[in-house]
Write a protein that binds this DNA or RNA. Sequence first.
DNA 1: TACTGGATTCACT
DNA 2: GTGAATCCAGTAA
Length: 184
Amino acid sequence: MRPLPKEWFAGSALELAPRLLGKIVRKGSCTGIIVETEAYGTDPASHAYRITPRSRPMRDTYGHWYVYFTYGMHWCANVTADKGGAGAVLIRAVEPVEGIARMKRRRETDALKELCSGPAKFCEAFGITGKENRRPVGGGFALYDAPDIPKKDIGVSGRIGVRRGAELPWRFYIKGSPFVSPVR
DNA sequence: TACTGGATTCACT
DNA sequence: GTGAATCCAGTAA
């Protein structure tokens, strides 16, 4: 498996979000196939709309992890993008491949579909926390290349995350995958 | 220093 | 479909 090089992440979040589908994510002994992503640029719905100490990695880095805590209990993992700009791609759902027993223990469920079918579920199953924040993609927490998903097999949702008048971000997913998050 | 609300999930009705 | 859980970043004062 070939790790995705840093320059792979130099494009905009909107370009990268669909291209990340089908790629392999690995952390420790757990691996999975990315089946759902969401693009965050500089629109009002994005943390990058106003750069703060928390969101600075979205502007200052690309090809790094941006992991933040929300709702008092959940972690969400993004990959920073957009060399020279600001943006990140949220990993929303993953198809479990290796380390499934460990994921089941962490998630306290035996249901395969419930392990990683949501951004916070993915983080819990893979043991991702704020310790990974600002780390470069690679090493123990890495992304690996895989053939691009044909465009006809990629679904694009309507406008979700609509807040403060924002019409972005866009959610991308592999059509027909049982591992995408439940439609809201 | 004091509020407010969130890129979610789960249990319950 | 609705609401609770739970805590921290961001904002305002």
